[in-house]
Design a binder for these strands. Sequence first.
RNA 1: GCGCCCGUAGCUCAGUGGAUAGAGCGCCUGACUACGAAUCAGGAGGCCUGAGGUUCAAAUCCUCACGGGCGCACCA
Length: 567
Amino acid sequence: MTIMDAALIAQALADFLGLPVDQIQARLERPPRQDWGDVSYPCFELAKRWRRSPQDIAAELAATLPSGTWTASAAGGYLNFAWHREKVLPGELRRALQKGVALPQTGTGKTVVLEFGSPNVAKPISMGNLFPTIIGHALSRMYQALGWKVIGINHLGDWGSQFGKVLAAYHRWGQEEEVRGDPVNALYRLYVHFHAEAPRDPGLGREAQAWLQRLEGGDLEAHRLWRWFVEASTDAFLSTYARLGVTFDHVWGESFYKDRIPDVVQQLRSDRLLETSQGAQVVRVGDDIPPCIIVKSDGTSIYAARDVAAAIYRYERFGFDQMIYVVGAEQTLHFTQVFRTLKRMGYPWADNCHHVGFGLIRLEGRKMSSRRGDVVLLEDVLDEAVRRVAAIIDGKRPRLKDKARIAEVVGVGAVVFHGLKNQRMRDLEFNWAEVLSFEGETGPYVQYTQARIHSLMEKAQFQPQQFFQIPEPWGPEHPVTTLEWELWSALSGYENTVVQATVKNEPFLVARRLLDISQSFNGLYNNQRILSDDINTRIKLLALSDHTGQVLKHGLNLLGIEAPDTM
RNA sequence: GCGCCCGUAGCUCAGUGGAUAGAGCGCCUGACUACGAAUCAGGAGGCCUGAGGUUCAAAUCCUCACGGGCGCACCA
């Protein structure tokens, strides 16, 4: 608990009123305007109970409540508390400089399996892959920051009927040299061509099905091609992941679990959970939703069965406390079916499996369709962002060292931040102008703020020791300014934001907090001189700036974005 | 038809049941011979889709409409 923790106020109020602390604390809130105070207690509930006006109660409490490191005042039916800024801030800042960002290690000893990324083999990484990749990556870092052991798994789409299509298309039209030269694009063209031809050529569908059956049956030729395609695609994916700083503990595609499916089917059968319905083998998982299909009527496997097998394997291997699937919201029903199937199989840990969904990225109002080849490639977006950043650097900082690397970091950062700044369930209309914006609520804005602070630190050669030696940085002669206090308020909420963001699996909360902090800092920076001639002022503002820079860097890192010291 | 998600400024979005609903972009006015102008200060811009309900108090919770998106058994 810090000096500024509202729990102190809740306790004092609870003692005075003779009410449970929890009840008081649940009511505490932030006043809408900072000059009204830092913590607020609405007295309307008491008013009802005591049959007195809330105004009276607030006024009386303000007058009679024993004071602490705060001042209480009444405003209408609200009892407002304002911290004694000059007394509180020095200690808080000292602690912050000593400890840096200190997150509660609530995950210590616990393991979370995080499935994310999961691109399909034989298709290039498009903007459609942005969310599953960067949301998963951010969550991975956030859980780690809270002490969890994170197992990141990239669940490649490398099996199933789409693969039958790729094999059929390659067999019909494919050229070996072409695929050798540029595997992903060549395979993708075949896939798109397949879907273009399929409507007027019913034979194609049958060929795809036959290839899938050959593949699942262990046919050597099918298997050889499959392995080649998977390996070539994986290489391409890895280079994009490298740009994004994304890594995985395991790249286990769907095919990884295929040999475990027969055991799953066997177990379901002996548990009498499997039924034959319309030629398929299914598990009933409730009257409100359709059954979970485990084996298709043609005998080939289906993704639900692979997901069930995968979950069991992962539990046996990792004994996870939580498993999170970062997969599009359109698959909500599928995961409900899978989790209920696991539950019916008697696995209590099925309750610890969670689907973290996200909205669609749409293109000119429609869903991007990989079947039609109607996609925007992620690499193209990254390249364009980097190119534009490089042009800006040439214009305003021509002598910047390491220009190419900085342009890469800032350009990629803009794209990643753009994808993480809103609630994940919201659909995103892809818009070049917005992705390529570097001003306002953007990644480069936060990066810029951090770089600006770094530059201050360099110039001033600031060391935290200097701050510790000032006896009274703020006092009656030098009150804490509104801008300083606003910045501190934004900073002091950071740890809690990270905790909340992790609990809700919502990285955007971290992104928003970083914007708040950056805005507060820039407001201060433009209105108060930090490198003041007055040594006290200079050092305390440097101390505040130093911590701001640390938090921004920490937060960007959680989001998977690099924070360059110059840009 | 059923289920899930979304509906807040011209646009993109924030907004733990509480006070006068906030940002960014765009538009208008200003600030670089003080620390990095990818910045900042100010202005204009709102029936929080609509109607009921719960509550001392609703953008927020509950119903019902309307509008948009996504699902609804052998694709993933």
